[in-house]
Design a protein around this nucleic acid. Structure first.
Lengths: 261, 261
DNA sequence: AAGTGGTCTAGACCACTTT
DNA sequence: AAGTGGTCTAGACCACTTC
């Protein structure tokens, strides 16, 4: 039989299911249940990005498990990059307001020299009814409101990335071109702070394509120039897709870096 | 003070340094030392790819530490994909003779449908004096012997990948075109089995480039067609670079898949 | 000095596989 | 039944940070 935890003495406190009888059909290890509970608190914003979460001892008391079990749960959250541990200080909720996190989601590097902070140029922000394909990816109904963003990113003053971004309108209600343009820092940082939606993972598909008219105009390349096409679907908690992004990268002096491990 | 381990009673047995005095300049946790010792045994071939390594209990006895410490060491080795744990059976040395591992090192996926096993065509194998740039990457002396391989990979009968591979001649002594051509399975599997060299991680740089003459000839594409260029440096134990690979991918019906986590 | 995460141990029991 | 990895606990001590 699995490890079980007696119901909490305090009403409203989190409980842990473990299957205390032989008729328990589902099962997951205690530490996975603790991990799920902590993720819930992250998702609901009980502990916000950048903030300190309760100590291991305190969480162990709250969930009525040993510190070792909490530790293993947090170990996994740390491996998933949802939290960051700092010895002597505590465990912090990961945030996109950190260069370290940004590089996880922007893999374009200069062939020589150090990576610089890109300069953003918002070209267009509009609301539209989601095309079928976009709606399918974002897991919303076709025709539902969608925010569309067109953006240009300069590296060292050179236009290098052209992006088209689709977001669920229901989540990103007050998003305007002004807000995006005036915001200093990564777009995901804005999403996190202003819209309570944190991107925690993404899936990318890369291809080589020829520069189209728009790329020629915006990125100042010759027609037909080979461009790196990067299509991304980004997910928030609960594996909910909340962004579709199609980008074209100029890779003359830059490359997409990837580590195979 | 750090945890220390008394010297082994049996001569020749592995020892663990922990810094038993205040004058200990270097330090690493016990489990990291155990991890390093296990990696040594993997590198020297004491336990070969695909084989079972000793149980946690046995390793704990061998290194004179607790099972929990061995467990933590193996946990990391497992996270590094150097070993694979199987409940009830034991812990196995990872091997490239497994589809699961191959997909870690071949990220090209069909846009629709399932991934198939590619078909290999060895075009050329020769020995040459390493050009300065290749020697620099492989960390050998310029002019040292290098094995050069040119290969074509077909997906569903369509030529899709063209590769140029450079290997240190000192390691890959008996490598011939015949051996490569007749070998069924992944090239890294051959390297592992026949040359005792296992690729454990790789670093890739991706760009979009125009098809050159060779690509036009071998991959049957139009001149100037955008191609995905993938330059890889692969490493074996001790972070020793042992392969430089330059590939061109046709991405009309395929894409390079990447997960950002 | 107190609090945090990091390491290490010892022991118990569970789930899975093989004999 | 025996052996393996997987989970959970309790307790000790260490390294680091802050007060």
């Amino acid at each position: 039989m699995n490890q079980t935890v007696s119901p909490p003495a305090v009403p409203g406190q989190a409980t842990v299911s473990g299957g205390s009888g032989s008729a328990s059909p589902t099962f997951s290890p205690l530490y996975q249940q603790i991990k799920a509970l902590i993720m819930q608190s992250l998702q609901t914003g009980e502990w916000k990005p950048g903030e300190l979460i309760p100590s291991e001892v305190e969480l162990a008391y709250r969930y009525k498990v040993s510190q070792g079990t909490v530790r293993k749960a947090i170990d996994e959250l740390s491996a998933d990059n949802l939290v960051v541990r700092r010895q002597g200080k505590g465990t912090f909720v990961a945030t996109h307001h950190e260069a370290r996190v940004q590089f996880r989601f922007l893999r374009l590097m200069p062939d020589a020299g150090d990576a610089h902070q890109p300069e953003n140029h918002i070209l267009e922000v509009k609301r539209l009814r989601g095309p079928a394909e976009v709606a399918r990816v974002l897991d919303i109904k076709a025709g539902d409101s969608v925010v569309f963003i067109r953006r240009l990113q300069h590296f060292d003053g050179v236009p290098t990335i052209m992006e088209e971004i689709w977001l669920p309108g229901a989540i990103f209600k007050g998003l305007t071109a002004e807000r995006l343009a005036e915001y200093k820092g990564p777009m995901y940082g804005l999403f996190e702070t202003e819209f309570g939606t944190q991107m925690i993972r993404a899936s990318e598909k890369l291809k080589a394509v020829a520069a189209d008219e728009l790329a020629v105009e915006l990125l100042k390349v010759q027609p037909g120039t080979p461009m790196l096409s990067v299509e991304r679907v980004a997910f928030t908690y609960g594996d909910r897709p909340v962004e579709l992004r199609r980008a074209l990268y100029v890779t003359t002096d830059y490359h997409y870096h990837n580590e195979l491990i």
